[in-house]
């Protein structure tokens, strides 16, 4: 469970991005975060694993305050996988090493075991035949699936995804969303920032609407798409569909 209380994030004196965000993510649920550009979605999701340091407020993961300077971030990050818009694969490592690397460095696995697990994870995302390819030899969709395998290999409790399909063309978007869909409701908590309304509607348990640095609503997809709570959200839905 991630509990976010009074979260503020300013990048500078005059760039105040998050204003008093409060929310609790329940275990095992899938959340889609949507909202117009610049609303603070990326900033919010990046605060959860401390890629951005909150200005004030607290984020608590299973009772541990994530943004306490005394907290061991390694432990927190082991529990939270992250998938990025631009894949961010290690360009100098083949697919299986991309997956195996953190297993060895962070989980302390033996090389052989780590690679075995890496291959197994890559097979799970349909890339059993690509384990020895370098990122530059892969398509966008394949890269993103490697990135998902890399995050999942660590056996996180939570998977954060920031626009995982925004850099992909429609065909590849489908293959990546299929993988993400298969992960939902498997016990993993998923928090996905997305512009894919069909995915949000079909897969998410809850839709969080973020607007101008606040979560203005949390609704089920059925509620959100038919009767969003705020005028701005209704406008957003109308524009998207």
């Amino acid at each position: 469970m991630i509990k976010v209380e009074h979260l503020y994030k300013d990048y500078a004196e005059d760039i105040k991005v998050l204003h008093d965000v409060n929310f609790t993510f329940e275990d095992g649920k899938t959340y889609a975060i949507i909202g117009s550009s610049g609303g603070g979605k990326s900033t919010f999701i990046r605060c959860l694993n401390m890629l951005e340091v909150p200005t004030s407020g607290t984020i608590t993961l299973d009772g541990t305050v994530v943004n306490d300077p005394k907290t061991d971030l390694t432990k927190i990050r082991e529990k939270m996988g992250m998938v990025f818009q631009n894949f961010n694969l290690f360009e100098h490592m083949v697919a299986k090493k991309n997956v195996a690397y953190a297993l060895m460095k962070v989980k302390g696995m033996e090389k052989e075991q780590a690679y075995e697990k890496a291959v197994e994870m890559l097979e799970k995302v349909g890339l059993g035949h690509r384990v020895n390819s370098y990122p530059h030899q892969l398509s966008g969709g394949e890269k993103q699936r490697v990135a998902i395998a890399r995050a999942l290999a660590m056996e996180p409790e939570i998977l954060l995804c920031d626009e995982p399909t925004s850099a992909l063309d429609p065909e590849m978007t489908t293959e990546v969303l299929k993988v993400l869909k298969s992960l939902s409701h498997t016990g993993l908590t998923m928090i996905v920032v997305t512009h894919e309304m069909a995915f949000a509607r079909e897969v998410a348990d809850y839709i969080l609407y973020m607007d101008q640095g606040e979560i203005t609503e949390c609704s089920t997809p059925a509620e959100f798409f038919t009767n969003a709570k705020t005028e701005r959200a209704r406008q957003f839905v109308a524009n998207m569909l």
Binding site: L51, N86, L89, F90, A102
Partner: peptide
Amino acid sequence: GQIEAAKALGV
């Protein structure tokens, strides 16, 4: 991005 990805993995 790669540095962030590594950080996010706990490296």
